[in-house]
Amino acid sequence: MTAGTLISPATSNKAAMVMLWASASIAVLILTFILGYILIRGIGVVNLSFLLGSPRLSGAEGGVLPAIVGTFCLMVVAMLSAVPIGIGAAIYLAEYAPKSVMTGIITFGVECLAGVPSIVIGLFGYAFLVIYLGFGFSIISGGLALMFMVLPWIVRVSEESIKAVPMGIREGSFALGATKWQTMWRVVLPGAVPGIMTGVILGVGKAIGETAVIMFTAGSSLLMPSSLFDPVRALPYHLYILASEGISDQMAYGSSVVLLAMVLLINLAAIAIQKRYGRQYGRK
């Protein structure tokens, strides 16, 4: 690259362009390769009895239904708690928070929580939820631990979406004699919903794929849960156990396909929403 004096600028420019195209292609190839490899190796395993069956012999045979159900339960608990709190926090930060030390601390807390490694959240969940509060290895412990992980994400996305709603809309509502909350609830939040939705859906994707947080909070039972206080083994943890304990590569590939399909569908849905509603205020 320092050969500028030996090679003409036009040539080095061309070479650089080729290199840049190549690096972008490599990035796309890596993605395609990983997805393709998993799909090709695992798609044959996935059928109805795999999806709807129960595992036998620690998962070496049978299906993954309890793990899918477990993942779903954990995700629902996490989102049901994270979404209202996260949106509430975002509204406060975007619209109510005065410029004060307290607000600074709150904002710092959100940023800080976003940076906590998931395994540390897992440790905390174990110490606080499983032991201290006595929830045991359970859906509620795992779900709440996941909530701690997705909460900062929900806050950030919602806050951005709320702030993106034009000031004029708020003024219009105030000028009609609306209170602050009426304005928030009736015009600002509806305007921010597409952005918040996208964020929430991406949050669901994160929650579904997360492993370290739930390893020692949700348990590893392969039985169907019957209450919030039952342990479950989420699909990604199931995949980890299958692969790392060498129980069954076939089942591991199959589980990967299912997990990947869930996560990709969710991400595509988020992209679609963004495309469809993203420019609500861009129009004339």
């Binding site: 209202p84 926090a89 930060l93 709150i106 807390g109 440790l123 110490a127």
Partner: peptide
């Protein structure tokens, strides 16, 4: 209270760890 949740969790993580 919602907004203060995150900072509370961070404080509790620190305390418990």
């Amino acid at each position: 209270v919602s907004a203060a949740t995150a900072v509370t969790v961070v404080a509790m993580i620190t305390i418990f760890l």
